[in-house]
């Protein structure tokens, strides 16, 4: 049998296996491009929508210091969304197209942001738990196979590092404060714990895309691996704070050298993914409204740039 020249797909996979980054103009399988656009834009949408639940506490932050920190943090999320949209644009899509997909409901974003933020302790939980979970997802993506995505993630992770710390600090201050504050912290943990575990996605057995994504190195750990890592990381931190994780099944397993924990309510997970979370409607509505009400502003800037250019041409 004669040896066949490697196909473009095989050459592509060989580069990935050798940990050589793929860059925008390189040949890539159409499925790789599509999967990446979906994953990166979904990530960008999550940053954008993620501004809303925390944004609504900026005006109620309890001190000037906390107000500055929270505003800077939510602003960072706008920046992260921007870096990610830019990375996706190198794959041949446009921000306008990605936003249209978000607004029509075609594109998804992280379900965690469809839960309401009801007390100041939620700012602690979002930073400590939600950003903590996000970081577990994101750090491996700094080595993902697509160059612009990896570079965007390096920038995101660098900036993200203060987010989790400020969240933990909020929780710690509450836990060391008055009984009412400690109660506030526990109540928030009770609401955020399970939705945070859901952030890692469905169980591996029900995550059909994982295998291909791992092969392409646009995903580097499975959902269940990351979920376990998260629980192992967070349970001791909750103990340090004097808070109780709302799962009776949480128990150290000496044999596995990991925590056992209970089953996520997958019914709730799928309901929120499908649009039936408490805030799905208003989050999306807020984004659509901002975009639509901004249309005349964006058009004006373009029109003015055009007029100015025309005047310069005449003058020249």
């Amino acid at each position: 049998m004669e040896t066949l020249a490697p196909t473009p797909e095989e050459q592509f996979q060989a580069r990935i296996d050798a940990d050589i980054r793929i860059e925008p103009k390189d040949w890539m399988p159409e499925a790789y491009r599509k999967t990446l656009i979906r994953q990166i834009s979904q990530h960008a949408h999550s940053e954008l929508v993620g501004m809303l639940p925390e944004g609504n506490w900026i005006t109620r932050a309890p001190s000037l210091k906390r107000k500055s920190i929270l505003l800077a943090k939510v602003q960072d999320e706008a920046g992260h969304g921007l870096y990610l949209y830019s990375a996706a644009e190198t794959l041949g899509t446009s921000r306008e197209q990605m936003l249209a997909d978000l607004h029509s409901g075609k594109a998804k974003y992280s379900s965690i942001f469809n839960y309401p933020t009801l007390s100041w302790a939620d700012m602690g939980c979002v930073g400590w738990l939600v950003d903590g979970a996000a970081i577990l997802n994101q750090v491996p993506l700094c080595r993902t196979s697509y160059g612009p995505y990896a570079r965007a993630m390096v920038r995101v992770c660098k900036e993200e590092s203060f987010h989790q710390r400020q969240g933990f600090e909020i929780m710690q201050t509450l836990c060391e404060g008055a009984p009412a504050q400690k109660e506030m912290a526990q109540e928030a943990l009770n609401r955020w714990w399970w939705p945070t575990l859901m952030m890692f996605g469905p169980k591996d057995s029900e995550s059909p895309n994982t295998e291909q994504s791992m092969k392409w190195r646009i995903k580097r750990f499975t959902n269940d691996e990351l979920r376990q890592k998260f629980v192992d990381m967070m349970v001791p931190q909750a103990e340090f704070l004097g808070l109780t994780v709302p799962d009776e099944k949480v128990k150290w397993n000496e044999e596995r050298q990991a925590y056992d924990f209970g089953e996520v309510n997958w019914e709730e997970f799928w309901a929120v993914v499908k649009g039936n979370g408490l805030c799905n409607h208003e989050r999306l509505q807020a984004r659509v409204q901002a975009h639509e009400e901004g249309a005349w502003v964006r058009e004006a800037a373009l029109a003015h740039a055009g007029k100015r250019k025309a005047r310069e041409t005449v003058a020249a």
Binding site: L82, S86, R155, A301, L302, H304, A305, R308, K309
Partner: peptide, 12 residues
């Protein structure tokens, strides 16, 4: 090179 962004003109 650090990334990209959208703007109506060079000054912006």
């Amino acid at each position: 090179h650090v990334g990209s962004l959208h703007a109506a003109d060079a000054a912006m």
